[in-house]
Design a protein around this nucleic acid. Structure first.
Lengths: 146, 146
DNA sequence: GGTGGTTGTGGGGAATAGTGGGTAAGAGTG
DNA sequence: CACTCTTACCCACTATTCCCCACAACCACC
């Protein structure tokens, strides 16, 4: 099955809720999601079925006892399990809105097995500059799409 | 099932009680927990079902008779079994509050299979500085989230 | 071109969650 | 045995969260 695709810009209401595109709701095999910030720029929304695999890898890494394992709490502390209400909206906690720079509206991006939640301006700014990086991207993309 | 996630800052009342987030209470398969300090910085709260595995590993280690095994009592001495009251609060003994630097308020952190109890300022100070450590963390995290 | 369903958006009201404190039972001490 | 201090249970208050109803825009389909 094709994963999450496309982009939707929705309002973030005064209670901190955003609609989840109906298309995404239908595609997800589970109605529950894990919303977390593991990159500084944006939030990521995993269906719980996908999240479980991630969680297992996190547990394995922590049990390994490496130096970085001690900081994993910084990741899990920035996560919540959310479930859309009857109208298909999820509530984004204040501390996550702040971290992702969300105010007013949110851009929902389909990213195959997950959904990303961006502040529209940040997303525009995150596009690669025409230059070296963009050339590398182009080359990689050519190899994939053939 | 998704484990314990997120962060909640609650008051620590004059009797030394803290509310356990309702979400955590629902998630735990058992209402009883083991609260202990095994790291200098904070306290950790294990559901008894999870604790049993830890306890088994402690017993195995002690039976192994290694040098460190002789100091395990320093760990178990800093532990208590707690159970939330009807309002969902647990009582933190004075000697544990002191060791974790708790006063006024407590930050409850979801860490997948366990819950951590931090002094808010200490938690902020424990965040990895932008630098080598933070880069390693980012790299490890990228590998996990792909 | 109407018509019915679906989708995003707004807001009111009930249930729940966190917080404070009073009082009784229990443990430890002299 | 009496006294004190701690722990546990209970009642009450307030703010937040969650659930539900309702509207309006859009699309598809007769």
């Amino acid at each position: 099955m094709a994963g999450f695709l496309g982009q939707y810009e929705y309002q973030l209401d005064q209670k901190g809720r955003v609609s989840l595109p109906a298309d995404y709701r239908r595609r997800a095999d589970d109605s529950r999601f894990v919303l977390l910030q593991w990159e500084a720029t944006h939030l990521t929304l995993f269906p719980v079925s996908t999240w479980e695999g991630v969680q297992q890898r996190l547990l394995d890494l922590r049990r390994g006892g490496s130096a970085v394992a001690r900081h994993l709490r910084q990741i899990t502390a920035r996560a919540v399990e959310v479930e859309p209400d009857k109208q298909g909206r999820i509530l984004i906690p204040g501390w996550l809105k702040e971290g992702a720079g969300l105010d007013g509206s949110a851009l929902l991006i389909g990213a195959l097995d997950r959904i990303e939640v961006w502040d529209p301006e940040r997303f525009a700014a995150a596009a690669p500059d025409p230059g070296q990086e963009s050339e590398e991207l182009e080359a990689a993309v050519y190899e994939i799409f053939g």
